[in-house]
Write a protein that binds this DNA or RNA. Sequence first.
DNA 1: TCTGGGGTCCTAGGACCC
DNA 2: TCTGGGGTCCTAGGACCC
Length: 397
Amino acid sequence: MSDDSRSCPLLHVDMDAFYASVALRDHPELVDLPVIVGGGHRGVVLSANYLARRLGVRSGMSGTMAAQLCPQAVRLAPDFAAFEAVSRSVMETFREVTPLVEAYSLDEAFLDVSGSARERGTPLQIAEWLRARIHDEQRITCSVGLAATVSVAKLASRRAKPDGVLMVPPDRVIDYLHPLDVGELFGVGEKTRDRLRRLGLETVGDVARIPLPTLRQMLGQAAGAHLHHLAWGTDRSTLVPRRSEDDPERSMGAEETFSRDTADPVVIRRELLRLSGKVAGRMRRAGYAGRTVAIRVRYSNFETITRSRTLPDPTDVSSEVHAAAVRLFEALPTGRRIRLVGVRVEGLRPRVGSERQLVLGAREHGWAEADRAVDLAGRRFGRGAVRPATLLGGDRP
DNA sequence: TCTGGGGTCCTAGGACCC
DNA sequence: TCTGGGGTCCTAGGACCC
């Protein structure tokens, strides 16, 4: 590859089979076997090594199906603490190269290296340096896509996998994009792909040839414009450093699939209590309060509904979140068997000090104090050290 | 024994206010 | 007597991503 890579200052770095690679690093005796991370009872595959993929296993697939395709695979439980540690360390390496890092998930990030040339060389040289460095330090491989825009860099890294590099310079973008299946575009999932196919649009080029107003009419204002830019490779070229002070989280939630479906309101209310405490605790640790409490219920037929209520004031108090969640749940028709429940708090804003207690009555004040005591005990004795009495000894779903 | 758990963004309709 | 728009907030659902 000749090095005209200065026209491709955006790097998308993506770890190869991240969870599986980290797991294998800690279980070297398994490297020659197909390995699946996740996919336990009622679960889906989180990651699979390339041996398992060769047999058809894909992440997101149900564990049951993976076991059918690949009964000889070794199944490992995910170790999120290990994944997070590797992720933090990799992101630090990225920040050595440039401050312009958009961490997209635990195992992916976009880097803008346009300002790093003098110290570190061309984007292509930087990509290879990063790959070598990550391999040396973490013993896992990654792939890098280079382009002038975010979505093209992302497509390129996918095509480079595993353990490769692919650059798509601006003057080659159209030739690269237009033959691709529309489903490959970042943001085009199964539903949109099917819809486009029914409209006779199979390739990215087909979409590109549709006039923008027509596309907007077909897919909606935002989605139409978005797709148009993706099809011409003219999507955004500047990065948004994620999860900084000017980029607060929008919502926090927790959900759980029961080990078997249940219609028992006592079991469900107890689960709502546990999830509310988990969410509110995370909010307090992160310094957020939020006004809208939402629950999610998935019935045994997989039909999924949400119900939400906006409170007069933001809260991070476990019992307030729980009370709102239970009220929403109790407004639902009874008797249907439920597969999953979730609690989410939306409209988060940074909690400034504790001014709220000053204007509230004694009742709420007491619960906020109780939460603080629980948080303190959790820090000293481990999370879950103090819990509501109804969660003690109860069967976890 | 099909189908997790964490999120984000968009749309659409109705309420409500000016 | 008949009939306005625009803006914002709230709620529910849907699509998508890793």
